[in-house]
Lab assay of single mutants.
Amino acid sequence: EAHFQVQLEQLRSMGFLNREANLQALIATGGDVDAAVEKLRQS
Results as ranks from 00 to 15, higher is better:
Val33Ser: 05
Glu1Trp: 01
Val33Trp: 04
Gln7Phe: 04
Arg41Pro: 09
Val6Asn: 10
Met14Ser: 09
Gln24Thr: 13
Gly15Leu: 03
Lys39Tyr: 08
Ala28Pro: 02
Glu9Ser: 05
Ala36Lys: 00
Leu11Ser: 00
Asp32Cys: 06
Ala2Arg: 05
Ser43Leu: 13
Gln5Leu: 13
Gln24Glu: 09
Glu20Ile: 06
Ser13Leu: 10
Ala2Phe: 03
Asp34Asn: 10
Ala28Glu: 12
Arg19Val: 10
Ala35Arg: 11
Glu9Cys: 03
Leu23Asn: 15
Ala35Asp: 13
Ile27His: 14
Leu8Glu: 13
Arg12Gly: 10
Asp34Gln: 12
Ser13Tyr: 06
His3Met: 12
Gly30Cys: 09
Asp32Met: 09
Gly15Asp: 14
Asp34Ala: 07
Ala28Asn: 07
Val37Ala: 13
Leu8Tyr: 05
Phe16Thr: 01
Glu38Gln: 09
Gly15Glu: 12
Glu20Lys: 13
Phe4Gln: 08
Glu20Gln: 07
Leu26Gln: 00
Ala2His: 10
Gly15Ser: 06
Leu40Arg: 02
Asn22Leu: 01
His3Lys: 15
Asp34Gly: 08
Asn18Ile: 06
Gln7His: 14
Thr29Gln: 08
Ile27Gly: 10
Arg19Gly: 09
Gly31Thr: 01
Val6Tyr: 10
Phe16Tyr: 03
Val6Cys: 05
Asn22Asp: 01
Arg41Asn: 14
Arg12Trp: 07
Ser13Arg: 10
Gln24Arg: 07
Ser13Ile: 04
Asn18His: 12
Asn18Gly: 08
Leu26Lys: 01
Gln24Cys: 06
Gln5Phe: 06
Arg19Ile: 13
Asp34Tyr: 05
Arg12Met: 11
Val37Tyr: 02
Ala25Thr: 14
Leu17Ser: 13
Arg19His: 11
Glu38Val: 10
Thr29Arg: 04
His3Leu: 08
Gln42Val: 11
Gln5Thr: 14
Glu20His: 15
Asn22Ser: 04
His3Ser: 11
Met14Gly: 05
Gly30Asn: 13
Ile27Asp: 14
Leu8Asp: 07
Leu26Tyr: 00
Gln7Asn: 13
Leu26Cys: 07
Thr29Glu: 09
Arg41Ser: 07
Asn22Phe: 00
Thr29Gly: 07
Leu8Pro: 01
Ala21Val: 11
Glu20Ser: 07
Glu9Met: 02
Thr29Cys: 14
His3Asp: 14
Val6Trp: 03
Ala36Asn: 00
Gln24Ala: 12
Ala35Cys: 08
Leu26Met: 09
Gln5Met: 09
Phe16Pro: 00
Ile27Thr: 14
Asn18Thr: 07
Asn18Met: 14
Gln42Trp: 08
Leu23Asp: 07
Ala2Glu: 14
Asn18Ala: 07
Thr29Leu: 06
Arg19Thr: 07
Val37Leu: 09
Arg41Trp: 03
Gln24Ile: 06
Ser43Gln: 15
Glu9Val: 04
Leu11Arg: 00
Ala35Ser: 12
Glu9Ile: 04
Ala36Met: 00
Gly30Ser: 12
Asp34Lys: 11
Gln10Ile: 04
Val37Asn: 05
Gln7Trp: 02
Ala36Trp: 00
Gln5Cys: 05
Ala35His: 15
Arg41His: 05
Ser43Trp: 15
His3Thr: 15
Ala2Leu: 08
Glu9Arg: 02
Ala36Asp: 00
Leu8His: 09
Ser13Lys: 15
Met14Gln: 12
Gln24Pro: 04
Ala21Asn: 15
Asn22Gln: 03
Leu11Gln: 00
Ala35Thr: 10
Gln7Arg: 04
Glu1Thr: 07
Lys39Cys: 05
Met14Pro: 00
Val33Asp: 01
Asn18Gln: 14
Gln24Phe: 09
Gln5His: 10
Gln42Leu: 11
Asn18Lys: 13
Val6Met: 12
Asn22Ala: 09
Asp32Val: 10
Gln10Ser: 09
Ala21Leu: 10
Phe4Val: 03
Gly30Thr: 11
Phe4Tyr: 14
Gly30Glu: 13
Ala25Trp: 06
Val33Gly: 03
Leu23Tyr: 15
Glu20Cys: 04
Phe4Leu: 05
Ala2Asn: 10
Gln7Lys: 05
Asn18Pro: 01
Phe16Ile: 01
Asp34Pro: 13
Ile27Leu: 11
Leu17His: 03
Ala21His: 14
Ala28Val: 07
Met14Lys: 13
Gln5Lys: 15
Phe16Arg: 02
Arg19Cys: 11
Ala28Thr: 08
Val6Thr: 09
Ala21Ser: 13
Ala25Phe: 03
Asp32Lys: 13
Ala25Gln: 09
His3Cys: 09
